[in-house]
Design a protein around this nucleic acid. Structure first.
Length: 866
RNA sequence: GCGGACGUGGCGGAACUGGUAUACGCGUACGUCUCAGAAGCGUAUGGAGCAAUCCUUGAGGGUUCGAGUCCCUCCGUCCGCACCA
C-alpha cells in the first residue's frame, strides 16, 4: 500500500474538479437550491492570510454536505478590489492600480484553489471590472433618481494622513479606523445617501431574519431608535437678539419628568450657530463655546471628561408649569444628537445630576424609584444611603425620605418604569410610563410639543476624493441648471446623469494617484476627462470627480453572483428568484434571501447595514425579489498568533497558510482550522495541533489495510457508527465543527482496533469528505469507485439500529456516585431499583438505614436518598 | 456607564432540555521498534493519599435527591456602543 502523500493527490483532484467543472451550478427548477455566501476578500498584495480560510472552509464544509444531501448549491467567490491599500501602493510605486489588482487577484486565486474550495469559479466577480461597476453606477443612479442621493455641504470627518473623507461609521474614538490618525472636521461638498429614510425598515427587517444575536443587537444599537417628544421652551424677551427669538426645541425620551426640569442645556454647536447669525452673547459665553468645540475634536476618550458649561443669561419657560429656568451652554450635550438641546432633570439623569451638583443648580425629585433618585441608593433591606436632605433643600413639597421609601417599597419601584410620579401636578400618582403617554398628549393638545422618534443613524457620506473607486456617473451643466431642466433635489446645482446605455463610466488612466490637500480627487486634474458634453442639452459640462467608497461594490455583489455575465441587467429577475427566493411553498412575498451568510463581526455594522439598505431599496423599486438580502447570518472568531495576540507583521507572529499546506497538506490544514476550537470564538494557532490532525488522517489512511469482509460487526460497532453519523450531521449544521471532528476521531480510534467491513469504512469516508475532500476522493477511488465521492449521497442515521445489549445504570447515594451496574435494556423501573438496593456497595453506604426516597431516571441512573 | 459573550486539567477545549465532569487533540512519562535518532505503534495521564476514600468547573451563598449547567452577590477577561438626552 502506498502511504499518504497529500501533495500528489491534492493536485490531481484539484485538476480534475476544474476540468470536470464539478462545482459549477445552473439554475434547476427540479432541485432545491442552497445559496451559501462568504464575504469576498480584498486582494491585498500580501496574499492570503490564515484568517481567510476559517470562514471559507466552514462554508465549504456546509456546501459540500448540502450537495451530498441533494441541494443545488451556489457557493460563489469574487474580489472586493477597490480600496486604499492598492491605491497607496500605486502612489508609492507609480504602478497602475488596475494592473496591481489583476496580479493580486491571480495570487489569491491560486492560493484559494490550492485549498480545494468548492467555489463556482465560473461566477467569479471583480468589483473593479467595468462590466461589474457599470451596475454599481446604475444602482447609484437609481438611488439618485429616487431622491435618496443628494449633495450636501457639511462638516465631514477628514483624515489628514489618508487625505480622505470618512463616514461616521469609519471613525473610531475620534480617529481614522484605518490608520489611527486623529480625524479633523472639514467643510466639504459630499454626496450623501439617505439611509435614514430606511431607518425604520432596517430595524423592522431584523425581525424577519435569523442573525446571531450580537449581530442583530449591534445593528439595533447602531440604528438607535428612541421614542419621546420634542418640547418647545419659550424664550424670554431679554434674548431678543437670539435667532430663536420665540422658542427653543428640546428632545427628550422622558417627558414624564418634565416637572423636574431645572435648566435647559444646549450644545456648543447649537450656540455657535446662534452666534453666526447675530446672537449678542457675553465674551465669557463666546470663549466657552469656542473652547468646547476645540476640545470635541481633540478628545478621543470622553469617559473622563469633566463637565463644563456657562450660563447664557437667557431664561426659558417650562411649558408644563410655567417656571422660568436658565439656559446653559454645556459640553455634555452633543450637536448632532436630537435637537442639540435638552431639558435637564438632575434628579433622574446622572449627567444632569453631575452638572447640577457642580454648578449648584436645583435638583427636584419627580419620580419615586430606587434606582433613579440620584444621590440616593437603596440596599436590599430598603435602607436609603446618601443625602436626600441635600437634594430637596430647595423644594418643600417633595416627599420626605421616609415617605419616598414607603412608596418605593409598596410599589416595588426599583426601575424608573415602575416608579410613581410625584411633585408633578396632574401627573402625580401615575406610573412613569403612563405619565409619559399622558404628558405627550398634553403637549400636543396645548401645541407646545409633539411625539417624536429619534434615530442615532446618520445619512451615509458616499463620496471619496480618491482615484481607485467607482466614478460617480454624474455631469454638471450650468446651462441646464439655469434653465431648471433638472428637478431640484439638493441644495446646489443639480447634476444630470449619464444615461444607462452609456454606462459604465470608466475610470480614466491618470499619471499620478496622489490625493490633493485641497481635498479633490486626482481625477479633477484630468481636464480631458472632466470636461465633457451635457447628456441632456449637449452643451459644455463638467464631470463629478469624486468616487464611491469601497462599501459600494460589496453592497450588492451577492446579487451579481446569481447572473454574473448578464450584459442587459445587473441580474435577471428569473435567476434572482431562483437563488434568492424562498423555497418554502407558504412563503410570504418578499421572503427569502441568501440562505446562509457567514462573515466577520467587524462587518456587522457597516457592510451588513449598507447592503441591507441597498437591497431594501432595490426591492422597493421592483428590481430584486426579497426584502432582506440575507436570511441567516453567522460569524467566525479570529485566529490569533501562537502567542495569543492578534497576528501582525510587527509582532512577527504571522502564520503563512502556503507554508502549512506545503508541510502538512491542504486536507490536514483545513481540518485543523475546523478543529482548533469553537467556530465563533477567537482561537490561538498551535502548529502541534496541526500535527495531531495529520496523524489522524494517516490513521484513517491505514484503515484501508483492515478492510475485510469477514470482519465482525457487533451492536457496539453499530452504536459507534450510528452515533457518529448523527453527531457529525447535526454538528455541521450548527457549525460545531470541532466536536464533529472529535467524533470522527473517536470512530477511527474504535475502528483501528479491529478489522472492518468495507461499507463501514465508506460511511466514515463520506462523513469525513466535506472536511478532507481530496483525501477522501483518493481513498474512495482506491476502493474501486468510478464516480467521485462528492457526487455521493450523505449517510442517513437510524436510531433504531442502536441496540443496546446492556445498559449502564449509575447508582447515587445522597447525590454521590457509588455504583455502576450493567443491566438488560428491558429491565423495568422496579427491577432496576431492586438491583440497586441489592448491590453490595450500595448496601455499605446505606449503613442499614431505610431509603427515604428513590429516584429513577430511565436508562441512566438511580438516586437513593437516606 | 450601558449592552453582549465568557471563566472547566500543564495547554486548546468536550458535556443534549440539571443526571457518571475533564470527550477529542496537544503535551508529558514509560514501553516497543531501531546501530541510533525522528516518525510509528502500545499503555498511562485532574489533584491528594499505600489504601479505603476525599477534594476539584473564577470566589462565596441559595434552590434540588442531584448543579459546570438554574437563582443571588462578588471578582476577572474579551467584544460592541458611548455624555444618544
Amino acid at each position: 500500500m502506498k502511504s499518504y502523500n497529500p501533495k500528489e493527490i491534492e493536485k490531481r483532484w484539484q485538476r480534475r474538479w476544474e476540468k470536470e467543472k464539478t462545482f459549477s451550478v445552473k439554475e434547476d427548477a427540479k432541485k432545491k437550491k442552497f445559496y451559501a455566501l462568504i464575504e469576498f476578500p480584498y486582494p491585498s498584495g500580501a496574499g492570503l492570510h490564515v484568517g481567510h480560510p476559517r470562514p471559507f472552509t466552514a462554508m465549504d464544509v456546509i456546501s459540500r454536505k448540502k450537495r451530498m444531501e441533494g441541494y443545488n448549491v451556489l457557493y460563489p467567490i469574487g474580489f472586493d478590489a477597490f480600496g486604499l491599500p492598492t491605491e497607496n501602493y500605486a502612489i508609492k510605486t507609480g504602478r497602475p492600480p488596475a494592473k496591481v489588482t489583476k496580479e493580486n487577484i491571480a495570487t489569491f486565486t491560486r492560493q484559494l484553489k490550492s485549498l480545494g474550495y468548492s467555489f463556482d469559479w465560473s461566477r467569479s466577480v471583480d468589483t473593479t471590472d467595468p462590466e461589474y461597476y457599470r451596475w454599481t453606477q446604475w444602482i447609484f443612479l437609481q438611488l439618485y433618481k429616487h431622491g435618496l442621493a443628494y449633495k450636501k455641504n457639511q462638516p465631514i470627518n477628514w483624515c489628514p494622513k489618508d487625505k480622505i473623507g470618512l463616514a461616521n461609521e469609519e471613525v473610531v474614538q475620534g480617529c481614522c479606523e484605518r490608520c489611527g490618525t486623529p480625524v479633523e472636521q472639514r467643510n466639504k461638498e459630499q454626496w450623501m445617501l439617505a439611509i435614514t429614510k430606511y431607518a425604520d425598515k432596517l430595524l423592522e427587517g431584523l425581525k424577519e431574519v435569523d442573525y446571531i444575536a450580537p449581530a442583530r443587537i449591534q445593528q439595533e444599537n447602531w440604528i438607535g431608535r428612541s421614542e419621546g417628544a420634542e418640547v418647545q421652551f419659550v424664550i424670554q424677551s431679554e434674548a431678543k437678539d437670539l435667532p430663536i427669538s420665540r422658542s427653543l426645541t428640546v428632545f427628550t425620551t422622558r417627558p414624564d419628568t418634565i416637572f423636574g426640569a431645572t435648566f435647559v442645556a444646549v450644545s456648543a454647536e447649537l450656540a455657535q450657530s446662534w452666534l453666526k447669525v447675530g446672537w449678542q452673547a457675553s465674551e465669557k459665553v463666546k470663549k466657552n463655546v469656542e473652547a468646547t468645540l476645540k476640545e470635541r475634536v481633540a478628545t478621543a476618550d470622553r469617559d473622563e471628561q469633566e463637565k463644563t458649561g456657562v450660563d447664557t443669561g437667557i431664561k426659558a419657560v417650562n411649558p408644563a408649569n410655567g417656571e422660568e429656568i436658565p439656559v446653559w451652554v454645556t459640553n455634555y450635550v452633543m450637536g448632532g444628537v436630537g435637537t442639540g438641546a435638552i431639558m435637564a432633570v438632575p434628579a433622574h439623569d446622572e449627567r444632569d445630576y453631575e452638572f447640577a451638583k457642580k454648578f449648584g443648580l436645583p435638583i427636584k425629585i419627580v419620580i419615586c424609584a430606587a434606582k433613579h433618585v440620584s444621590g440616593l441608593k437603596f440596599d436590599k433591606n430598603g435602607t436609603a444611603h446618601g443625602s436626600i436632605d441635600e437634594l430637596n433643600a430647595s423644594y418643600s413639597d417633595v416627599y420626605t425620605p421616609e415617605e419616598m421609601l414607603k412608596i418605593i417599597e409598596e410599589n416595588g419601584a426599583e426601575e424608573l418604569e415602575d416608579g410613581l410620579v410625584c411633585n408633578s401636578a396632574f401627573l402625580n400618582g401615575l406610573k412613569a410610563l403612563e405619565a409619559k403617554e399622558k404628558m405627550i398628549q398634553w403637549l400636543e393638545e396645548k401645541g407646545v410639543g409633539k411625539r417624536k422618534v429619534n434615530f442615532k443613524l446618520r445619512d451615509w457620506v458616499f463620496s471619496r476624493q480618491r482615484y481607485w473607486g467607482e466614478p460617480l456617473p454624474l455631469v454638471f451643466c450650468e446651462a441646464c441648471a439655469k434653465n431648471k431642466k433638472f428637478e431640484s433635489k439638493g441644495e446646489e446645482m443639480n447634476p444630470g446623469w449619464i444615461p444607462d446605455e452609456k454606462l459604465p463610466l470608466k475610470l480614466p488612466k491618470v499619471a499620478k494617484y496622489e490625493p490633493t490637500d485641497t481635498g479633490e480627487s486626482p481625477l479633477a486634474a484630468m481636464e480631458k476627462w472632466v470636461n465633457t458634453r451635457c447628456p441632456r442639452c449637449g452643451g459644455k459640462a463638467r464631470r463629478e470627480t469624486d468616487t464611491m467608497p469601497n462599501w459600494a461594490g460589496s453592497s450588492w455583489y451577492f446579487l451579481r453572483y446569481c447572473d454574473p455575465k448578464n450584459k442587459k441587467e445587473f441580474a435577471s429577475m428569473k435567476k434572482l428568484k431562483y437563488w434568492l427566493g424562498s423555497p418554502k411553498p407558504d412563503a410570504k412575498p418578499g421572503e427569502g434571501g441568501v440562505d446562509w451568510y457567514n462573515g466577520g463581526m467587524e462587518h456587522t455594522v457597516l457592510h451588513l447595514l449598507y447592503s441591507r439598505f441597498w437591497n431594501q431599496f432595490l426591492f422597493d423599486i421592483g428590481a430584486v425579489p426579497t426584502h432582506e438580502p440575507y436570511k441567516k447570518r453567522t460569524s467566525h472568531g479570529m485566529i490569533l498568533g501562537p502567542d495569543g495576540e492578534k497576528m501582525s507583521k510587527s509582532r512577527g507572529n504571522v502564520i503563512n497558510p502556503d507554508e502549512m499546506v506545503e508541510k502538512f497538506g491542504t486536507d490536514a490544514f483545513r481540518m485543523y482550522i475546523m478543529f482548533m476550537g469553537p467556530f465563533d470564538q477567537a482561537v490561538m494557532w498551535d502548529t502541534n495541533g496541526l500535527v495531531g490532525v495529520r496523524r489522524f488522517l494517516d490513521k484513517v489512511w491505514n484503515l484501508q489495510e483492515k478492510i475485510s469482509e469477514n470482519a465482525t460487526f457487533s451492536n457496539i460497532d453499530e452504536n459507534h457508527l450510528q452515533t457518529t453519523v448523527k453527531k457529525v450531521s447535526d454538528d455541521i449544521d450548527q457549525m460545531k465543527f470541532n466536536t464533529a471532528i472529535a467524533q470522527l476521531m473517536t470512530l477511527t480510534n474504535h475502528f483501528s482496533k479491529k478489522n472492518i467491513k468495507r461499507v463501514h469504512f465508506e460511511t466514515l469516508l463520506l462523513l469525513l469528505s466535506p472536511f478532507a475532500p481530496h483525501f477522501c476522493e483518493e481513498l474512495w477511488e482506491n476502493l474501486g469507485h468510478n464516480s467521485p465521492i462528492s457526487k455521493e449521497t450523505w449517510p442517513q442515521y437510524d436510531l433504531n439500529k442502536i441496540k443496546n445489549q446492556s445498559m449502564t445504570i449509575v447508582v447515587q447515594v445522597n447525590g454521590k456516585v457509588r455504583e455502576e451496574m450493567g443491566l438488560v435494556p428491558e429491565a423495568s423501573e422496579e427491577d432496576v431499583k431492586q438491583a440497586a438496593l441489592a448491590s453490595e456497595k450500595v448496601q455499605k453506604w446505606l449503613e442499614g438505614k431505610e431509603p427515604k426516597k428513590i429516584i429513577y431516571v430511565k436508562g441512566k441512573l438511580v438516586s437513593i436518598v437516606v
